[in-house]
Nucleic acid binder design. Sequence first.
DNA 1: CAGTATCCTATAGAATAACTAGGAATAGAA
DNA 2: TTCTATTCCTAGTTATTCTATAGGATACTG
Lengths: 144, 144
Amino acid sequence: MMISTRGRYALRLMLDIAINEKEEPIRVKEIAERQDISDKYLEQIIAALVKAGLVKSLRGPQGGYRLNKKPEEYTVGSILRVTEGKLSPVACLEDEVNQCPRKGECITIGLWEKLNDAIKEIVDNTTLQDMIDEHRDKADDYII
Amino acid sequence: MMISTRGRYALRLMLDIAINEKEEPIRVKEIAERQDISDKYLEQIIAALVKAGLVKSLRGPQGGYRLNKKPEEYTVGSILRVTEGKLSPVACLEDEVNQCPRKGECITIGLWEKLNDAIKEIVDNTTLQDMIDEHRDKADDYII
DNA sequence: CAGTATCCTATAGAATAACTAGGAATAGAA
DNA sequence: TTCTATTCCTAGTTATTCTATAGGATACTG
């Protein structure tokens, strides 16, 4: 399993805010209850998202969290990279430029690059809104 | 980084045998030297490959390891699954049938399935021979 | 039977994952 | 101003996995 709870919770958390946010900001405790996740753990995860500028926080009573942008402006990749770090299959692809001294002769690098590209293709082209829409479509299938 | 040294070494090890195997079987020590990997660690990794029936071993002097099949008959996936376990992005996709009770309402499952399919598409359709060929082509590029 | 290889099992240090805990800082309401 | 609800910050904890290392048992060949 390559995506840890941290990244998966972050995604559910962002989707939860996207779906439930109306006028008032959303409290961590609400999200924790709806998603059935430890609120103390969620606090830490959301702190990283605040620090990265993905959500904004409001302290004090009636405080909570709000998205900074519209759901269609968040890619899954932008969220997972904050919480999971790099999404590369191998370390040498984590930097912009591959620093590995064996790179030239490496027989496996082509495979890792293919995997890397496939993963990026998906996470960088799926937005929160896409996920919400697809989920609605799926739910419709059941109703029809 | 989702692929650990175990899986990466296993792949290099299989490729090393595929490329260097002539009449005589290949000793772990040889591979360890060529690939610059601890031989004791390689021993454990290759033991798993033997147990899974991917390579056969010959004990005693003049012993070593041999591939059981032709390089084009090994997919990368078959090797990585032996050494890395499941390659799924999330736990609920590791079994044939998704057992998760939240599956029906899960808003993220579609994304994980897409990732899972993309990974499988690559690892199950790339063989050792493909990697050898592609590497040769790349080397040619430098020469030309 | 000596030597060379694999085979098997135990151990260990380091890193990571997945939380848990407690209190400080802030802001709104009474 | 004080109470309270909320986020913010940091440290600690438990379990697991990673990445080996080590040492000897077993098997085969010449």
